[in-house]
């Protein structure tokens, strides 16, 4: 089967460009059940990578281990040349501040305004109490947050409460919050899984445009194989605790990708 043949063909850009994410021999078990079994992945700066795999294959676990929201049992994570495996406290928070993380459910604070939520994105790079609520924030920070909202096309909703937004709009606010981090990497865990197809398409488009215009490294997992092919430079398939497929998206079809679910 041709999947097996393609398995070891790394995308050509990997060896040449500067690496943004290096995951080495990551292992993670829940109790007796191993989820990640010594997984390796290298992503060069500016690349958009789609991570696919069946439910429970460990996609979310892998993303969370990469920023140590879940502590891996062993292995190393090197982000932008910095080994973050052993960092603690303020150093870990600083490393995390450069990674925008977008969740399936937007995870905004529902009772606060859109602008306050976007301002929270800056909390990692400068822990100031004035960022807690938009009413306290400096003019400079408020303007930057407005600019982030403009980039996702929602500046007109800055004063609204998050609960008054649609699912797609909320997810775009979550992206604005990630942009407020001034990130070099954006990770997204099934960001469009709870959106209708059109809103999903819009959000994926936004990710794609942003990663291109700002040279952001993008790692997202998805069950939409079309999204993987359309919006990523590279598709990585996770199965049985390791990477079973790694291909440039231009050289693979949706039909071929279905093989990872077998």
């Amino acid at each position: 089967m041709n999947l097996a043949l393609n398995m070891n063909q790394a995308a050509p850009s990997i060896s040449t460009a500067e690496l943004e994410i290096e995951i080495r021999e990551i292992r993670k078990s829940y109790g007796e059940t191993p989820i990640l079994k010594g997984l390796n992945l290298e992503i060069p700066k500016g690349q958009a990578v789609a991570l696919i795999g069946s439910n429970g294959s460990g996609k979310s676990t892998l993303l969370r281990c990469t920023t140590r929201l879940i502590e891996p049992d062993s292995g190393e994570v090197i982000l932008h040349g910095q080994n973050i495996t052993k960092l603690t406290g303020a150093r870990l928070r600083e490393a995390r501040s450069k990674i925008g993380f977008v969740f399936q459910h937007h995870n905004l604070v529902p009772r606060l305004s859109v602008l306050s939520n976007v301002l929270h994105g800056a909390l990692g790079r400068k822990p100031s109490a004035r960022l807690w609520f938009q009413s306290l924030a400096t003019n400079l920070d408020r303007e930057e947050a407005m600019y982030c909202l403009e980039r996702v096309g929602l500046a007109q909703f800055a004063a609204r409460r998050v609960t008054q937004l649609s699912g797609g709009q909320s997810q775009r606010v979550a992206i604005a919050r990630a942009l407020m981090q001034r990130p070099t990497i954006i990770m997204a865990d099934e960001p469009v899984a709870s959106l209708d197809p059109q809103a999903g398409e819009e959000v994926m488009n936004l990710f794609f445009q942003l990663s291109r215009s700002e040279n952001l490294t993008l790692l997202f997992c998805t069950h939409h194989l079309e999204h993987a092919v359309d919006y990523a430079d590279r598709v990585v398939g996770l199965s049985k605790g390791t990477i079973q497929l790694d291909q440039e998206s231009s050289s693979i079809s949706v039909a071929e990708l279905r093989g990872i679910y077998d």
Partner: peptide
């Protein structure tokens, strides 16, 4: 939302 803030690098007080 707490996990999101942790991912951003916000401290406990924030």
């Amino acid at each position: 939302p707490q996990e999101a803030l942790t991912a951003i690098g916000a401290n406990r007080t924030s």
